[in-house]
Design a protein around this nucleic acid. Sequence first.
RNA 1: GAGGCUGUAGCUCAGUUGGUUAGAGCGCCUGGUUGUGGCCCAGGAGGUCGGGGGUUCAAAUCCCCUCAGUCUCCCCA
Length: 431
Amino acid sequence: MAFQTIRGTFDVLPDAHSSGGSEIPGSAAWRHVEGVVRGVMERFAFEEVRTPVLEPLELVARGVGGTTDIVQKEMFTVERSKETYVLRPEVTAPVMRAYLEHHLDQRGGAQRLYYLGPCFRAERPQKGRFRQFHQFGTELLGSDDPRADAEVIANMRAVYDSFGVTETRLRLNTLGDAADRPAYRDALRQYFEPHADALSETSRQRLETNPLRILDTKSPDERALLDDAPKLPDFVGSEARDHYEAVKSMLDGLEVPYVEDPLLVRGLDYYTRSVFELEHAALGAQGVLAAGGRYDGLAEAVGSKRPVPAVGYAAGVERLQIALDDEGYDFPAPPRPDVFLVCLGDAAEAAGFAIAQTLRRAGLAVDFALGGRSMKAQMKAADRAGAAFSVILGDDELEAGAAQVRDLGASEQRAVPIDRLAVELARETAA
RNA sequence: GAGGCUGUAGCUCAGUUGGUUAGAGCGCCUGGUUGUGGCCCAGGAGGUCGGGGGUUCAAAUCCCCUCAGUCUCCCCA
């Protein structure tokens, strides 16, 4: 094998296959998943945006945050003349860029946008975690209404409901406003500084750069320390508090279940107020299916003169697929040809090629074997292709002007005049 | 970035204490049916045993290096 997919990437093939430890669904399954997602988005009246995979390095650095792991060590950069571009590690900052660049606020009202596409992070690949992975998500831009938060969460929930993925837990918290952050950050620093010895190296570093991230720790020792640490909710101002309460009561009203987690913070710098994660029960702590929050500070962080209140979430397609696999999700059968042409001899092959054209113009899906194979081989191919009918064409049929049409399910066949094939088969396959 | 595990046909895997031309099942191709699929039977193609080096009369098997995959930690969707 001369070449292979680079580390952490995979091919999507007609059939499912395993790429190392992960099962890569076939292309029909991908289309189905994408279709269901799009269907939910349309019911929520979210409109699609497609942004480039390549973005300016600075957009990502400023949008996602310079202290995050993504920016510090997980970006794929591309040098081109004097510019440095980056393969997008997430899509929120690019969507905000597009919103600002094209003045989408001028379309009037809050913009309900969604996206679906590949992202890139130079992480160490693991099960359900790739260097080129796929995300979908929504961004509701231009509203600070708590209903926007609830709407986005309800949309996220609706996607998984549509797939019947119910073994999940929604965790919810509020980070307060940007103005609330410094006081809490200082309080955390003050609390942890005497305990610096007990902290891991990364946590010590975060104490300097981004103390909130210490709340993310999984170390039991540090967890214990957190018990007595200053609590984020105590530092949330009254406006953000009211906003949070409103979001919660709306979720209650929608009967969207959630649990509050005052230790929940998000990895990316741009979040304010609401933050949330949807985790899959079976996949455990690593199994975050989707996550998001409000990011009222992002627009200005990427250069907007005016703030743009916004809220959204991002979801991993590969993780959704693992969850579906886990729950034994029943994928619809991939499309199969209506007709498989079986041609015997040069004259029949020539005639059959033209007949394929005619049948396809009539809307039928038509397959046939190349290379002048034996009838047995062609019938076998028809069977394997899952065709509903085979149309058999040899010298006898050409002379008679009627082909043999075989129902491969019922194993019955009859002669049909060649110029009647399109209408007869169209009628048969429609039934 | 740290640690563990695994690399033998397209796929899933055997391969006994190192010993001749490296096997099975499935899949693929051909034939059994001079023009009929699914079942069955027979035959066939397909492998520099991940790569390189070493030990040995002899290496898929032992040693070293390397590459790839994978899992855990880290982090994240």
